[in-house]
Amino acid sequence: MRFGFNFWLGATLTALVIFAGILAPWIAPFDPVFNADLMNSELPPDATFWFGTDAQGRDVLTRTLYGAQISLTVGIVSQLINSLIGVTLGMTGGYWGGWWDDLVSGLTNVMLAIPSLIFALAVLAVLGPGLPSLLIALGLTNWSWTCRVARSSTLSLKSQGYVQAAKILGYGDMRIMFTQILPNMMGPILVMATLGMGSAVLSEAALSFIGLGIQPPSPSWGSMLTDARQLIQLAPWIAVFPGLAIFLTVLGFNLLGDGLRDSLDPHMRTRKP
């Protein structure tokens, strides 16, 4: 399988963010929460504080590195929940058809009609802010596209000879779905999940920005932006670095997803002379 430039750029960016998150406790120069020192507040970037300091005098570099942990956790866990729900509903709906398919398709259309961020807000309003509720809120609201892709893939795979052959050989429905259909639609599902991680990181930042996501003093990129909002003209570095981190992470996931799609889908593959 050949991977293009997009894939490798996306993979590099994603790998950087993952390493930053995992290695944060060792490579970050300060403690993300407890090194607050008002004597050092709002210092511009210098040799000690590479990314400057925020209003409480905390190191922006340290908090940005730790922020990767939260963003990645949210991106990966919420997307796992989304894929699980989407694939289960879409695959069974497409395979069995009938009333169950009507129900799944109807539910998917309803979910697509509700703006997912607003729905996530409603879930968070019920569950209260915090990381676990954020994971649930984002995990329950973004499965509709995955479900559609899983359903349509199942519909087209269902008529393939090898699925019919499996039926004739006596395979049960569940066994057919897991051994014949699921492995053959992993490509598009993986692409959807990777692209979804990017949007989940953005949603996390947005929800934390309006105060419903990660609560201070935990270092989330979204809540760092909230803190920076009032100081954006006096100390722009407090906003620029977490903003840049969000940008590069989402770009990384999107490029990775695009690159995966290009190399997994033969129809999208560009032919080189």
């Binding site: 090898y162 004739i168 006596g170």
Partner: peptide
């Protein structure tokens, strides 16, 4: 399954 089996037309679509 032990009584009737089938050979398919399209050998490209009939194998996983």
């Amino acid at each position: 399954a032990k009584a009737v089996q089938m050979v398919f037309q399209d050998p490209y679509a009939s194998l996983n």
